[in-house]
Design a protein around this nucleic acid. Sequence first.
DNA 1: AGCGGAAGAAGTGTCGACAGCAGGGGAGAA
DNA 2: TTCTCCCCTGCTGTCGACACTTCTTCCGCT
Lengths: 268, 268
Amino acid sequence: MNAPRTRRGTVGRDGAVSRPASGRKAPPPANLERFRAVIHRVLSRGEEHPSLVTEIACTLGAEILEGLLPPGCDLNSVELARRFRTSRTPTREALAILEKEGLVEIPPRRRPRVARHGRAEIREIYHVRAAMLALVATEAGEHAAPAEIAELREIAVRMAAAAAKGDANDYFWNNVRFHERLAELSRNRTLQRLLDSLMLRSLRFRRRTLSQPERIQRSIADHARLVGALEDRDLGLAAALVRSNVLGALRSLEALLEAEGGARGAAG
Amino acid sequence: MNAPRTRRGTVGRDGAVSRPASGRKAPPPANLERFRAVIHRVLSRGEEHPSLVTEIACTLGAEILEGLLPPGCDLNSVELARRFRTSRTPTREALAILEKEGLVEIPPRRRPRVARHGRAEIREIYHVRAAMLALVATEAGEHAAPAEIAELREIAVRMAAAAAKGDANDYFWNNVRFHERLAELSRNRTLQRLLDSLMLRSLRFRRRTLSQPERIQRSIADHARLVGALEDRDLGLAAALVRSNVLGALRSLEALLEAEGGARGAAG
DNA sequence: AGCGGAAGAAGTGTCGACAGCAGGGGAGAA
DNA sequence: TTCTCCCCTGCTGTCGACACTTCTTCCGCT
């Protein structure tokens, strides 16, 4: 409390959030760690920078995805530098990276903050994602070995099992892993990178989408059929299936947003 | 090998390149300026940072696209800082931006250098670009007003005129403008951003592709038909046309690369 | 009491400096 | 002469400092 700032929330400061220092451990940190891993994979594709910048970016990004840093939350570099015990230079660079990934906004000469996606932007992201995933499915169908497709089926089975158990979290992460593997099977690094970037943007919403049971059923069916299409090398069907799945998720998400925050205006 | 670098191949230093200061005016600077404009548009989408970083990134990017900074060329931040009369901080940030745009590679702890794209990566870029442009065509067909499509046709006509005149440069820039406008018509900012990024990567090759006369003929026909399909709101045809066009360009480019540098191994 | 403006606090963008790694060049060996 | 190893130079990543801009708060004026 050295600085009695009546400023806005600035959730970034030390004790206020995310430091598991004190007794606060209510939010399960497991997901935070998983988000960290995903972001790490996305950011340091290829080379392994054991870099300070990457470290900061991963931590912040995970907290944003987890929702610990809510949209619009201030992220000033001096607080962050203090928190990570570094100078502002790496902090700023990390913020710049997160900006490019769409998780942070940095208006010139103003404080960076957690990005807020408007409805329109969400639509855009999902539409692009649908097209890219269709391409992924096509290329995966061209290049994947049968064994690899079998592995995909295995993940799909685990997804179904998790859903049957009602373990939404397990389902969610298996879903992520499925798409991760599928992207790899396309053998197209450029596509993987772009898709990863898109995934980061949509990851914040994916979880909410998956909270709807009938959506999950549809999704499971789609995944199972997708694997089948890949086995049959039916590229057209595979592409159509993933597109339908993503677009279905979008519809579901939009209904959810409409219901929960009609007037609250998730501005954009 | 044929290395232009004993230590300081480093084409970035002052007089060696790109400074239009002295009498050197052999390379037409018009293109450089145009590249600058394109990059500027891509980098500062939305807000107008009159920022130092953007300035540096634009200048360097334009020189890379123009070919003044050849692939593999060293770009050390201290030289660049000297050249732009700034400290290394903005220089480094500019390099980081260009890295994200795929024009520069920054291996950890090593000197940044102009990115070299291997054959495989070129293929990937074009494939993704084809899929994204197909989406653009679809969404443009959904959202564009007739007047806007008419404007597109006008650009297409200019492309044909330039080609008839044999003015490859004029053709090239009209082509760029066509795709720029088309992307805008999709009303999808996310898609525009991704496509812009992809364009930056492929811009280095596009010019070579366009040097082949029969390719230009095909391309002109494709564009004319595309405008027609948009007018008819035939989304499927529009998407198929752009995809075919991009993939045709890829084939043409690959043939060219194969011919010109079969053994020279454009490593990747 | 409410509003406009000034002073102060806070934060961003930029700078120059420094420690540590990486590669080049020279010394020494074969 | 040619190969190998070590030192030296140079460059990167990081740091603390500073000027200028923006935001906040408090004061005086209406």
